[in-house]
Amino acid sequence: MLRMAQATIGNSEFDRDTALTRRAVDGDRHGVHDVHLSAGWVIGRAVNGGYLLAVLGRALRADLPHADPFTITAHYLSASRPGPAVVRTERIRAGRGLSTGQATLLQRGADGTEVERIRVLATYGDLDRLTDDVRTTAEPPHLPPYESCPGSADAPGPVPPIAARLDLRLDPATAGWAVGAPSGRGEMRAWFGLADGRPADPLSLLLAVDALPPTAFELGLAGWVPTVELTAHIRHRPAPGPLRVSLTTRNLAGGFLEEDAEVWDSEDRLVAQSRQLAVAPLLGG
């Protein structure tokens, strides 16, 4: 199974690379944070969208009275690059059980002006106060044993920098694209963890929903699949142990596709869901 845990929550590469330095606070509603976007979370030339979602999720956690993201919707406005960035937050509402805020991440463009990269609107609460009442028809994905699933070390060619930070093992049934034999189905499934053994928490779940290779690869399409919008729901604090992630695309039309993600923990609980709209690569691109 997965390697023994080495890193801990708060002391891991993920935590260091999403760390923020508070620059200013404007009353009790606005915050400004500096962050350095690490090149270790890059795919192609752009920073991974799930990593960015975790950065903004951490900023909102610092500036809202509740600690856990319940729902967060991100619009990706321009491609983020490794290097310095600024996160600005605004508290919109603070209630007894839920609080809502928005955040935006900006970087300097080539001409020196600020360029907005991503904007999110989120509602936070306390996952430990959720009831135990569960009524669902959802079922966890069936994956071969971890040891039977190929990882980045088994890839036939070069892998992006983010692959070294993840312990990602793909279901062989959804990895045909890696050897030039895509299944033609819009599916992707994998065991998921962080390479240094850091346990999963609500912030890392924001990474998990956007960390797998895109379903477009199994549809026989190659190239960048930039996210336009992504909404994630965090449903439960994950239990210790590996996560299972499944992605499904049912509709590719007009040059766009959707990806529905489910994240399941070691106790067969659905701990996160997401849907994103992304630009589909051109056939044979």
Rank of each mutant, 00 (worst) to 15 (best):
D210Q: 13
L212A: 12
A216H: 15
L205A: 09
E229H: 10
F217H: 15
P226Y: 07
L206R: 03
S204K: 07
F217P: 01
D210N: 13
T215K: 11
G223W: 11
E229K: 10
L230M: 15
T215Q: 10
L207W: 10
G223K: 07
G220N: 08
T215A: 15
E218T: 14
P213K: 10
T227Y: 00
L207R: 13
L219P: 00
L205S: 12
T231L: 01
A222Q: 09
T215H: 08
A222E: 04
A211H: 12
V209T: 15
L203Y: 02
P199D: 01
W224P: 01
P199W: 04
F217M: 14
T227H: 01
W224Q: 08
G220E: 05
E229R: 15
A222G: 04
V228D: 05
E229P: 11
L230N: 12
P213L: 04
T227L: 00
A200K: 05
A208T: 05
T231D: 03
A200V: 00
V225Y: 04
L212D: 14
A200Q: 08
F217E: 04
P202R: 05
P202V: 00
P214L: 04
V209I: 13
E229M: 11
L207Q: 10
T215E: 10
P214Y: 13
P226M: 03
P202L: 00
L219Y: 07
V225E: 02
L230Q: 14
V228M: 02
P202W: 02
W224R: 09
A216D: 04
V225R: 04
D201R: 01
G220W: 07
S204I: 01
P213E: 08
V225S: 10
L230G: 07
L221I: 11
G220C: 04
S204Q: 08
A208W: 11
T231E: 06
V225Q: 08
L207P: 05
G223V: 14
P213N: 10
L230R: 15
T231P: 03
G220I: 09
F217I: 00
P202C: 01
L207N: 09
T215S: 14
E229S: 15
D210M: 11
G223P: 02
L206S: 06
P214T: 12
E218A: 10
S204N: 10
W224A: 12
A222C: 06
P213F: 08
T215G: 12
P199R: 01
P199Y: 02
P226H: 08
L230I: 15
V228L: 06
D210V: 14
P214W: 12
L205H: 13
A200P: 00
L205V: 00
T231V: 13
F217N: 08
G220Y: 09
D201C: 06
A222R: 13
P214H: 15
A211C: 12
T215I: 14
A208I: 01
P199I: 09
P202M: 00
P199V: 07
V225A: 09
P226S: 10
D210G: 09
P213I: 00
D210T: 13
P214D: 09
T227S: 06
T227M: 00
L221S: 03
A200E: 05
T215R: 10
P202K: 02
S204M: 06
L212G: 13
L212N: 15
W224E: 02
S204G: 06
G223Y: 12
E218C: 11
D201P: 01
P202A: 03
L221E: 07
